[in-house]
C-alpha cells in the first residue's frame, strides 16, 4: 500500500518537474505557465520525490528503502516519459490522480498500522 503510494508520489513528482519545463507545458496542460507557477511546480516535484523517499524508508528501512526508492523513481520516470510520448494529456491527468490518491493510501496505511499495533 505504502509502496504504491511511493510510486504514485514519484510519478506525480516527476510530472510536476516535467510541467515546470517550458517545452512540455503546452502538450500537457495546454498553456504556458507563468514564472510563479513554474517554480511552484518545481518545488512540488521535489516534494513529491522526497515524500516518495519517506514512504520507501518507512516501508523498508533506511538501507533497503533507499535502494527501493532509487528503483521506484527510475520506473516512475520511465512510465511518465512513455505516457508523455503517446498520451501527454493522460500523463498529466494521471499525475493529478496519483497526487490525489497517494495521501489517501498513506492515510489508509497509517490507519491499518495503528489498528494492528
Amino acid at each position: 500500500m505504502i509502496l504504491t503510494a511511493a510510486f504514485l508520489l514519484a510519478y506525480a513528482g516527476f510530472a510536476a518537474l516535467c510541467v515546470s519545463m517550458t517545452k512540455h507545458q503546452v502538450e500537457t496542460v495546454g498553456r504556458r505557465l507563468d514564472v510563479r507557477e513554474q517554480s511552484l511546480a518545481k518545488a512540488g516535484g521535489a516534494a513529491g520525490l522526497a515524500a516518495a523517499f519517506a514512504c520507501a524508508v518507512v516501508a523498508e528501512g533506511w538501507r533497503f528503502g533507499s535502494v527501493l526508492w532509487s528503483g521506484v523513481i527510475m520506473l516512475a520516470a520511465l512510465a511518465l516519459a512513455l505516457l508523455l510520448a503517446y498520451r501527454p494529456r493522460t500523463a498529466a491527468r494521471a499525475a493529478a490522480v496519483s497526487a490525489y490518491f497517494a495521501p489517501l493510501l498513506i492515510a489508509a496505511w497509517a490507519l491499518v498500522t495503528f489498528i494492528r499495533a
Binding site: 518537474l17 519545463m21 520516470a77 511518465l80 503517446y86
Partner: peptide, 9 residues
C-alpha cells in the same frame, strides 16, 4: 536535463 522526458516516436 533538457531532454529528460523527451521521446518523440
Amino acid at each position: 536535463f533538457k531532454d529528460f522526458f523527451t521521446f518523440r516516436p
